[in-house]
Simulated assay, not measured.
Amino acid sequence: MMQQNVGHQYLHLAADQLSDPDKVLDLSRSSSKAIDIMEDILGTNAFSYTLGDDSHMALYPEVARINHGCKPNAFVRFSPTSFDVKVIAFRDIEVGEEITISYIPLNHPREKRQRDLRRWGFECKCSLCAASKTEIAASDYRREKIASLQADVMKAIDELDGTTAVRAAYEILALVKAEDIPPMVASQYEVLARLFWKAGDIETATNYAQESLKTLVDLGYIDHHADDLALLLKDFTT
């Protein structure tokens, strides 16, 4: 308890040294377990980032005010060198359209999303959650099928069944495109690249690796560097 109290004191000291402490102190709070206002604010609004091998909490007051959407039009990109963040659009955002980001993983079905979002104290009523029962059922089916197929890919890899792994990976790619989850499209291209690399088809593996990097650059997740492809392919051999 003594160590916890000291931690709270440091958090308050850090807030007091800000040029505008109210930017932090006025942020929303949602924790029923926090015993200190700063602990509650961080738990509600901070982002978690890994630097080296350690996980850290980072608080950006302006970004923290962006609302959640299960099918967001933007995402937060963190720089591990400058420690700043950028809010980058997935797509063109219409005039007057609210900017939204996702607080949770993008590939969960509606019931799990709602359950996970309760920690912030609200029920999501975004366009995806408020869609018709038919649309929600179709979306949930695709997302649950993606999770099932991902398990099939891992099982096939363990059993050295490359044909089954590739077939399931292609099906996942079609589903994430249908569900419009852009980051998962990029990661699925990389999965296919790794599978073909393992099978010895270097040309196809390289093509999918290029598609993965291109998708990430187009989305704004990464900047283009001339050695990106070489570094990714090198990682396939480790």
Rank of each mutant, 00 (worst) to 15 (best):
T164Y: 01
E171V: 12
L216K: 02
A131L: 01
C126V: 14
L160Q: 08
E190K: 08
F122C: 04
A14K: 00
I37F: 05
I222Q: 02
D53T: 13
C70N: 07
D40Q: 06
V153A: 04
E111V: 07
I146D: 01
D22A: 15
L18E: 12
S132M: 04
S30L: 09
V191T: 15
I93H: 06
E123H: 09
E211K: 14
A46E: 00
R143F: 10
S82L: 08
K198H: 12
F47P: 01
Q188S: 14
S31E: 03
I101S: 01
L128T: 07
Y10Q: 08
T134F: 05
Q150T: 11
A205K: 00
K86S: 14
P105A: 15
I41R: 06
V63M: 06
V185L: 01
R118N: 02
L216D: 01
I99S: 01
S82G: 12
E211C: 11
E94H: 09
T44H: 11
G220H: 09
I99W: 03
G220N: 03
I93R: 04
N5S: 14
Q9P: 01
L27G: 05
V176E: 00
H224M: 11
D227Y: 05
A199I: 06
H108T: 05
S127E: 13
N207A: 13
D40G: 12
R194P: 02
S31M: 12
K198N: 13
T237H: 06
D201H: 13
R29C: 12
R29G: 15
A168T: 04
Y10D: 06
I172G: 00
D22C: 10
K71Y: 13
S28H: 13
I157N: 00
I146P: 00
M2A: 13
R115P: 00
D228E: 08
Y10W: 11
L149E: 04
H108A: 08
S32G: 03
D54V: 10
N107L: 12
M1V: 08
M1N: 04
W197F: 15
R142M: 15
